[in-house]
Amino acid sequence: MNESIHIFEQEGEVLLLDINSGAVHVIDAMVRDILSVFTGENDGEVLEKLTGQYPEAELREALGELHALMEAGELFAPDINVPPTFREQGLVKSLCLMVAQDCNLRCKYCFGDGGDYGMGRAVMSEETGRKAVDFLIKSSGARRHLEMDFFGGEPLMNFGTVKSVTEYARQREKETGKKFKLTMTTNGMLLTDEKIKWLNDNDFALVLSLDGRKEVNDAMRPDVGGHGTYDRIVKNFKRCLASREGGDYDYRGVYTFLRGTYTKKNLDFTEDVLSMNDEGFSILSVEPVVSKNPEIGFTEADLPRIYEEYDRLTHAYMERHRAGKGFFFFHFNMDLSNGPCVAKRLSGCGAGHEYFAVAENGDLYPCHQFVGREGYRLGSLDEGVTNTELPAHFRACHVLNKEKCRSCWARFFCSGGCHANADLFHGDIYEPYEVGCAIQKKRLECAIYVQAMLALEKQERETAAEA
């Protein structure tokens, strides 16, 4: 088969992705068989091999359709090389502030060692937070849109700094013309009505951590005393969500996400997604744990079961959508027509060159998961970036420069996977974490299927309405 296409089956449909154009086609079984032979120029060979299997007239008709797609640039599109729009040096546009390297939960899969990242429990001072705002403005060049995430640990354990830094960022916006998008990732334990109102008034997008069903969440996300947290958290999240009803938060991109982690203990994670939806939340994500702990982390042996579960989730997702009760699932939210530009697909999350994490003491790291990892300190807010080789190393670590990614069908959708995971498993950001790649590819197939079906069903409804 031609290496510039990927064909897969989902829920009985056969889908074709043209890798270098991003075109998606739903094809019949005969076209799939043709494409196992067809290279774009060998019609005679196709007819010779398949005429016994299919009527010749049908084969010729299908070949005509394939040639039309080639002429439209939607089949066998030419290879993509690094475009001139992907500049050699990145500009920092996004910071993750570790405002509290301390936490009131003890999640069993925490990559931050219970919140302190192995650096001792501490919180960021207001002065350090303000310096981070200035650093981002200075480092972002002509870019107008900037992003800042308040992270931890648990950021609400240091609400004073959050408020002070936000106030300062809004003041600097007026002085510089920059626009800050602010996000907070919180476990919700300290979400009081007063804090919710303040977060709403300051246009905070919220990422609320919950692992789905009560028994799943409480087994993985206990408090410091080892007690379950579900009842307390869900009560707070519901109040938070209710406070935003009737506002135009989603319209303005100020989303309220519920985000969970699944582990080897809940491979039936579809139930967790549906549980959160049943509780009234409609912007959801659950993601695979990345851990070397054999009790919760995944190996290749777990992949068939994980694939099966994504099939179940896809089915449930479509069922609810068709019944008019659809929800938003982060990994299925793929824009097939107007997705990001190629330069963005190469830079991905931007860790290490467009996106930095700021530790509570002002040290800079490539991202929140690298905080405290030996060999990955970039510099500090006071010194600036002193390890200038690291940003260049991360900038060059894109799919077209990685051997395993260069020929992978998913290369323009995954951005080469997570650097922190590659480092965790291989000690080398150029060596992708294989289990993560496999899960990502399955999710992408499900997402392409979901978006293709929703698009086709919409077309059918519009055609029927016109008739």
Partner: peptide, 27 residues
């Protein structure tokens, strides 16, 4: 088309020349 249903009109190739502004949070 009888055998193939195309579901999108992607702009990825176009962005080889026009992308890279870094303002994403044009296409």
């Amino acid at each position: 088309m009888k055998h193939i249903k195309t579901v999108n009109k992607p702009t990825m190739q176009k962005t080889l020349k026009t992308g890279g502004c870094g303002e994403c949070q044009k296409n």
